[in-house]
């Protein structure tokens, strides 16, 4: 069983953290992953930086741009992650846009992910239909779980289709927004969380976009299995340093 699937069976609400690999400094990647695990985070999304991140707001754009300036590339990231499984056991997901993976070669990319011990991928601009027709068998061959997004505008039919293709969790985008827009969750969002929960999908849902503190984490996980924090964590890295990750996680979980 894939580490993601095992983790999803734990009887707790999951906290997943996203960060841009190579930010703030090129060689911070492994240290950040290790510190996140030590701080009690359940799952990590390692962002593969891209020059044109369409679905991301200013915070992740800026960290992505800085990571590229620092010299991050697909090859560098894979080199940094080689051996990561000696020290880290929580699920690791690579999140990135499709073009860099396409240039690396989708099969070569997946193969390297498996060798490193990556458990899944999130590729916002690889549509579920294209994945299903062209890439599913490759991902499965290398034991990778591909995670798809749904939004408040996604139709019921499409959610059911996405559920049928998925074998890990569904990434539930909290509102019609790019990443990093957050002013708390209102009735509209909680109604949407409830509506999706009531569909009793085969895959658990993890909420992302707009979660930045204990309150939003609690709201998001009331109906979902877990929540993902990206921009707020990157702001923490920008303002603080990678040795105070503990404090960030504590503050979200209020332990």
């Amino acid at each position: 069983m894939n580490r993601i699937q095992t983790k999803l069976q734990e009887d707790k609400k999951l906290l997943s953290i996203y960060f841009s690999a190579g930010y703030p400094s090129l060689n911070d990647t492994v240290k950040i992953i290790q510190n996140l695990e030590k701080s009690g985070v359940d799952m990590i999304e390692i962002g593969l930086p891209f020059s044109d991140p369409l679905a991301d707001g200013p915070t992740i754009q800026a960290s992505s741009t800085q990571a590229l300036k620092n010299g991050m590339t697909t090859d560098v990231l894979f080199k940094q992650l080689k051996g990561i499984r000696k020290t880290v056991s929580i699920p690791l997901i690579i999140m990135g846009y499709f073009n860099p993976m396409l240039q690396y070669g989708v099969e070569a990319f997946c193969k390297t992910c498996q060798e490193i011990g990556i458990d899944g991928l999130i590729i916002p601009d690889l549509p579920v239909d294209v994945y299903n027709q062209e890439y599913k068998t490759i991902f499965e061959k290398y034991g990778l779980i591909n995670v798809f997004l749904i939004t408040p505008q996604t139709s019921i039919d499409r959610i059911n289709f996405i559920d049928s293709i998925s074998n890990g969790f569904i990434y539930m985008v909290s509102s019609a927004s790019v990443t990093g827009n957050s002013s708390g969750f209102g009735k509209e969002q909680t109604d949407y969380f409830k509506r999706i929960a009531s569909m009793n999908l085969k895959n658990p849902q993890i909420v992302g976009f707009g979660i930045n503190n204990h309150t939003t984490f609690t709201q998001a996980t009331e109906y979902a299995k877990g929540a993902i924090i990206g921009s707020a964590f990157i702001k923490h890295l920008t303002n603080g340093n990678i040795d105070t990750i503990n404090a960030f996680t504590d503050n979200i979980l209020k332990v």
Binding site: L54, P124, D125, P127, V130, F148, L149, T151, Q153, T154
Partner: peptide, 11 residues
């Protein structure tokens, strides 16, 4: 061609 778009744009 095709439509390689994030799910948020799909609708």
């Amino acid at each position: 061609g095709g439509a390689y778009i994030p799910e948020m744009l799909y609708p």
